[in-house]
Design a protein around this nucleic acid. Structure first.
Length: 212
DNA sequence: AATAAGTACAACCGCGAGGCT
DNA sequence: TAGCCTCGCGGTTGTACTTAT
């Protein structure tokens, strides 16, 4: 490693306001990068690695200050369930937030719940299934309404022309019934998988899907 | 009021990837 | 192509602050 090659003793621990000022001045003049030059050019007793970390996590002007919002929290949850501990990848989806910030937030807010990433993944999948179940149920409801309309048509048809039934009409009616039977079996299957998730979770996922 | 426990976050460390010579 | 340098990433630790007992 080359980080410690220039000097033997580097300052460690919390940064002072004066150190921050020197680092900001350095970046203004030379841009970010070439962090090993900072100690020589800016007069800082910090190694390049420490300077980079300080700049990236706290001094960058485009950083978003303040607490993680509930909206950001939902994004973190969703992306973590998808990518696991790939903090830098997750951070790229949250402008102004750093990987370190997200990592710390995750550890303090969610890790304590004792959920491993695989457990969270399972939960996310259950949420997805439950949402699909919800959509299927809505679809089934619409089908039932349509079915009732059809039934009224049939009754009216029998009333009017009981001796002259159209084969194409009865076929169409039968296919509608088949589709509904298929949906019912699908819903029954999903229901077993999704029963552990709440309707509140569905609302959260609806928000997430609407992000894009 | 004292202090133990919990929480939040800044900072450090080790490792590996990629570029350059 | 081997070795060095720079950088980024994820895990871990240290510490200040808050809350509970």
């Amino acid at each position: 490693m080359g980080w410690e090659a220039v000097e033997d003793v580097w300052r460690k621990g919390p940064w002072t306001a004066e150190e921050d000022r020197l680092l900001i001045e350095y970046v203004k003049l030379h841009g970010d990068g070439r962090w090993n030059n900072v100690s020589r050019l800016a007069g800082l007793k910090r190694n390049g690695k420490s300077c980079r970390l300080r700049w990236v996590n706290y001094l960058r002007p485009d950083l978003k200050k303040g607490q993680i919002t509930p909206h950001e929290e939902r994004i973190i949850l969703e992306l973590h369930s998808r990518w696991g501990n790939r903090w830098s990848t997750i951070a790229r989806s949250l402008p102004g937030r750093t990987d370190n910030e997200i990592k710390n937030y995750w550890r303090t807010h969610f890790k304590k719940n004792g959920k491993t990433s695989s457990e969270r993944l399972e939960k996310s999948q259950a949420l997805l299934i439950k949402r699909q179940l919800f959509q299927l149920q809505q679809h089934q409801k619409q089908q039932q309404q349509q079915d009732q309309i059809d039934m009224e048509k049939i009754m009216s048809f029998f009333d009017k022309e009981s001796d002259d039934r159209s084969p194409s009409f009865t076929q169409e009616y039968q296919s509608t019934r088949d589709e509904q039977g298929f949906l019912s079996s699908l819903i029954n299957g999903y229901a077993n998988l999704a029963e552990t998730t709440s309707n509140e979770d569905i609302t959260i996922w609806d928000d997430l899907w609407n992000l894009g």
